[in-house]
Structure formats: C-alpha cells, structure tokens
C-alpha cells in the first residue's frame, strides 16, 4: 500500500506525464505522420475539449459508468455470496471446481456472439461481459479465503452457540474479508478493461462505442482523446477502491 501512495505522489505523476507528452510530441514532429494516423498531443487535447463542450461525452461516460456499476457490483455480490457458501461446502466445491477451472480461462469476449444473439444490442452485453470478467477471480479467492479462516474462530462460534445463518455474517464473512477485498480491488481493473471491449461490439453508446465511432469516422484525435478518458477513469476507480481497501485492512487488522 505504501508503494502505491509513493507512486501517486504529485511530483512523480507530473514528471511522468510531462515526459510522456514530450516523447509523444517528439515522435509526432520527427516522424511526420499523417494526422489521420497519428495525432499530436495538441490534436488530442483539442478533441478532448470538443468531446466535453460540443459532443456531450458526459452522456457516454454516464452510460459506461452505469453499465460498469451494475455489472461489477452484481458480479461481486454474487461471487462473494456463492464463494462463502462453496467455501464451507468443500465436498460440493470439489465437483464444481473443475467446471470453474474450465470456464475461467475463456475470455469473456468469447461469449459475446451468444450474448448479443440472446440479449440483443444495448446495455446488456457490456453488463454481462463485465459480470463474467469480475466473477471468477472474486469467486475463487472468496472460496480460498473461507478455507483459510483461522479454525479458532469456528471453535469460538461453536463455544458460544453461533449457528447458520449468523455464522456466515458474523464470523465467516468478516474473517475472510481482507483477502476478499483484495480480489474485489483486482477484479475492478479487469472489469474496466472488458467494459470497453463489450461496448465496442454490443452497444450504441458509451466509451467503447465512441472508440468504434471515431475509427469509422477516421478521427484519430478523437480516438486518442477517448483512450485518455478511459485511462483516467480507470485510474480514478482504482485509486478510490485502493483507499477503501486500505481503510478496511486498517479496521480489520489482526493483532
């Protein structure tokens, strides 16, 4: 956690971005590329301005964010809930695990044709893609976190007569939570990556759609501007969840 904080210190951020923009400008000046193929930083910033002040990009950001929120939050809730149950039912999990291991390495994008066929174009494909992207990592790490709970907590619960369903909410979830929180944080990045991918194919709005739209209109400057927006929002979401996770670990901290 301390490393992230260091990394995010203002000076480091400024220096790294200034250097990035200088290199970008240098390549543009020296390379002499066609504007339609490689925009300059100035072109990108102008396009960014135009996106915000003329093209109402905020609507697209809003569309993307709400899809992301629905897909990600529902996925995390389902995965944690299922993980808590499967983590306790070792015998059943032994039979489910092979299927999960088979499904896990399949890119969520591979399901897209089916998803579009079944649900059509709109909000659903992106939501489903995000759901799949976040689901397996959170599920598996919840199951493993439940398995690693200190057996003393179970003995204490038995000793004080704490039974299901209280056992899950009072003991198992909080005891496993630090490890689960970490996977929820990691899944955020993965899910954000797949939001854009999902919207590129399945939607008529959102940041992913803007990427395809810019390509179709041969607007390299807009394309670059949208890429920057995607990166900045991803960074912001990660920072917010990173802070949350830090806070949780602090309050949860063991002896």
């Amino acid at each position: 956690m301390r490393n992230i904080k260091k990394l995010l210190s203002v000076k480091n951020i400024l220096v790294s971005f200034i250097v990035l923009i200088l290199i970008w400008q240098l390549i543009y000046t020296v390379g002499g590329f066609n504007k339609a193929l490689f925009p300059s930083p100035y072109d990108a910033v102008s396009a960014l301005k135009k996106l915000f002040f003329e093209d109402s990009v905020l609507t697209d950001i809003g569309a993307s964010m709400s899809r992301f929120a629905i897909g990600y939050i529902s996925s995390v809730i389902c995965a944690v809930f299922l993980g808590l149950i499967l983590g306790r039912l070792k015998n059943i999990f032994q039979y489910i695990n092979p299927v999960i291991q088979l499904l896990r390495p399949i890119s969520p994008m591979a399901w897209l044709p089916f998803i579009v066929l079944w649900f059509g174009i709109g909000d659903v494909p992106a939501v489903v893609i995000i759901f799949i992207a976040a689901f397996f990592p959170v599920l598996l790490s919840t199951v493993s976190a439940v398995g690693k709970i200190d057996p003393i907590y179970m003995k204490v619960s038995k000793s004080f007569g704490i039974k299901q369903p209280q056992l899950i909410w009072k003991i198992i979830l909080p005891a496993a939570f630090p490890q689960i929180a970490n996977s929820i944080h990691l899944a955020l990045g993965t899910a954000w990556v797949f939001l854009v991918a999902g919207e590129m194919v399945g939607s008529q709005s959102g940041l992913g759609y803007l990427i395809i739209d810019s390509r179709n209109n041969l607007r390299a400057d807009t394309l670059m501007a949208v890429i920057i927006i995607i990166g900045l929002i991803g960074l912001m979401l990660d920072a917010v969840l990173g802070l949350l996770e830090k806070q949780i670990l602090k309050t949860w901290g063991e002896n």
């Binding site: 003393i152 907590y153 003995k155 204490v156 000793s159 004080f160 007569g161 704490i162 039974k163 209280q166 009072k170 003991i171 909080p174 005891a175 939570f177 309050t251 949860w252 901290g253 063991e254 002896n255």
Partner: peptide, 25 residues
C-alpha cells in the same frame, strides 16, 4: 465455554462487541 491459548478474539470487533458476542445468541 472454552478459553483458548491464542484468545480467539474477533479482530473486526471492539472489546465491547467481543464481550457481547456470546450474549447475541
């Protein structure tokens, strides 16, 4: 009730909430 060598306190609960644990059921 059993008292263990490594205490078995719940780190996510305050002292008061830990003592209340058994009373909750």
């Amino acid at each position: 009730v059993t008292i263990f060598q490594n205490y078995g306190l719940l780190p996510w609960r305050s002292v008061l909430k830990n003592v209340e644990l058994g009373l909750e059921s």
